[in-house]
Nucleic acid binder design. Sequence first.
RNA 1: CGGGGCGUAGCGCAGCCUGGUAGCGCAUCUGCUUUGGGAGCAGAGGGUCGUGUGUUCAAAUCACACCGCCCCGACCA
Length: 442
Amino acid sequence: MRLSRFYMPVMKETPAEAQIVSHRLMLRAGLIRQQAAGIYSWLPLGKRVLAKIEQIVREEQNRAGAVEVLMPTLQSADLWRESGRYEAYGDEMLRITDRHKREMLYGPTNEEMITDIFRSTVKSYRQLPVNLYHIQWKFRDEVRPRFGVMRGREFLMKDAYSFDLDADSARKSYRRMFIAYLRTYARMGLKAVPMRADTGPIGGDLSHEFIVLADTGESQVFCHRDLIEMPVPPADFDYDGDSESVVNERTSLYAATEEMHDAAAFEALPEDKRITARGIEVGHIFYFGTKYSKPMNAKVAGPEGTDVLVEMGSYGIGVSRLAAAIIEASHDENGIIWPESVAPFDLALVNLKPGDAATDEACSKIYRELGAAGRDVLYDDTDERVGAKFAAMDLIGLPWQVIVGPKGLAKGEIEVKNRRTGERESLTVEAAIKRFATRPAF
RNA sequence: CGGGGCGUAGCGCAGCCUGGUAGCGCAUCUGCUUUGGGAGCAGAGGGUCGUGUGUUCAAAUCACACCGCCCCGACCA
């Protein structure tokens, strides 16, 4: 994409309303624009990041055996009356009345709806297990939205729902998601630690929050140091094999949010193993048994021929929130530093002197050949001053900057800058093309 | 929802206290110069001062109401 044809409204100054760094940088780099309290438009750069995050989530869900569907944002109140949550959910739920005076709501989550889909289509235990997920916008009418998309009212979320015949297999389903989550966050360059969580209003007896450690985190968290450096299950992890040891290895070490914190147990750890930090919740998984299947009568015929209530779990990932969480975890004073896997473009190509024949030609060659190789290149072909160009590129945080100017070219060189480390390297045009033309596999 | 604060040009702000018909910086446009880390000079465009009502000869400025947004707290992916 040529910057001259792209839409990327970057700002030098920070809008007054933004308090935390991710919110400031998202506004300054032109990722989002606020439309109302807690409601945002996603501009091209932000939209690209969102799509990258979404795709990683999707790939890991699929790998773990979950199946994608798409449920609507608007739901009927009747469905929620069945579970009793229409009354229980309170003012957080945005209620809407349609022209026929039918009561509707903008879904804050989808347990009822997925249970309805399940019960009307799955009749036998032979069809189990089933795990369905979707990636859809949700709305929770937070009393006080803040921190940009970190705590918006409208947010993009992946939510998966598992259905099993009995508690044992339901726990197996839970572990699949647990492992898929470890991989998902790691692929985004995040260290997310699973912590015992309060099951809250959704209920159930087994639940973990996945927490990214960041100074600006909303809650205090406590965990064992070894959790931070634990290796991630590989891409070819056998989900049908032993998931228990992977999960146990992690859940046996101390890790808890403030609400679940047990000071005595934590103090019992060796001092150098204790980590007290701030955390951002980026996922939450629950096993809640028959909490919804029972009131909504979701049953299948069991092996003995009698109907059995299905055992359910639900598994959320805050997709839009992750965009902010990644920035919180990865930025410097100049701007965002995107991990390669979620960067809106693979690299920036900076033409320091548009109009200079040799510079234009070198840039054009790099742009075309990397494009042909499948790389997403943001080519800054604009007339801005170099200082402004560099500042903008640092701000938007693409992992690599390929810098081409007449001075370097006179020596047969262009410059490659690593946004994260700041390291610069001089290469020939051909060497730079070769370097970036091959996409590293994760 | 309790407490606090703010709405003036795209962004950041001054002007309001003490009413007299709107200004600064950045950004934008034009010209010249400049050109490897957010340039300089000269000129230009852009605002129903959140909305409504009231007070007044006169309201960005005073009063009342409403709307919106932000911050702290209680609540949450």
